[in-house]
Design a protein around this nucleic acid. Sequence first.
DNA 1: AAGGTCATCAACCGCCCTTCC
DNA 2: TGGAAGGGCGGTTGATGACCT
Length: 343
Amino acid sequence: MLELYRLYKSWTGCVASTLLSPSAFIISLCLWVCQTRFPMSSPSKSGSSYGEEDIELRRGPWTLEEDTLLIHYIALHGEGRWNLLARCSGLKRTGKSCRLRWLNYLKPDVKRGNLTPEEQLVILELHSKWGNRWSKIAQHLPGRTDNEIKNYWRTRVQKQARHLKIDVNSTRFRDAIRCFWMPRLLQKMEEAAYSSSSARETQTSSMSVPLNQAPQASPDPLSQGSLIINEPMKSLNHEEKNLRSGENWNSPSTSSSHSMKVTHQFPQISELPTSPYEFGSIAYNPKGCYYVDNSSYDIGAFDLSSMSAMGDLDNSASNCHVAEINWVRGEMADNLCNMEDLW
DNA sequence: AAGGTCATCAACCGCCCTTCC
DNA sequence: TGGAAGGGCGGTTGATGACCT
């Protein structure tokens, strides 16, 4: 019994609100055993015969008791066979409902809370590649469910498309994502990485840790992916430096050593635009690097050259072309400030 | 304070694919 | 081989809470 409770605790640890005390757990377990062994006692049964069709299925939000029953049943019998589970567990739910509840909420490794910039970036990246393949995208975001990702896309991303008055599937919107949103997310990741590395430096000032080992700035959800943060100015190649010093480059007045190059490696390399372009403080060069000007800590250079999804954006080479720049700078720029709402 | 509006997200629905008999 | 059942997936809905007037 204690072992079962320990198992139960480990499972519900991430769903603190559902955690029962040992006594409550035992009571719930007894309740479950009674309902399982003596299903006829269920008040919801009607008629003289006990058949599945006689069970009045519950709908709507799950109760704590139902959650407990489901957790206990899966603790004993494992996942799968959802219809059988629904019949035998005492739950008056469909198998599908049980499965959904378990996968989206009760499963121990389900992450709660807001999506991190890294996760948002992966979603944007993979959605541009695969479209609404939510479950496939979710496979690359450990702990996140397809439902959660789908909701994120519909409530946050599509909202922006509505504000911009453009079709969410349009090239323009994808440009907006690629040219503003993704760099902004990368910028946030960089900020987080920098602040954490700064904190580390402060903490371990005697340790000489190269920034490019800074690690773990982001636990990249993509199995093949990695986030590499290099020392900035040193790592910029000649071309990049030239681009940065270009006349349209809104370069900050100071050139601190805070700038970094963030390389987000994705599984495959794709076609990239052939001509440089820039939007205000963000520029993109043919090598597939985003440069984000951030006056608070100088420039960050984002190397997205290996972002696979870019290749699936139709006509990448011309998506953000000059003709688009005016539009981007104009009406979209007015609206893009709203994107701050998204993070 | 109350009513209206909007955003979020858990849950449901329906379709489709796979497996089994 | 075809039908039934199980399960997965994407789209949609509705409850709820936050925010606004």
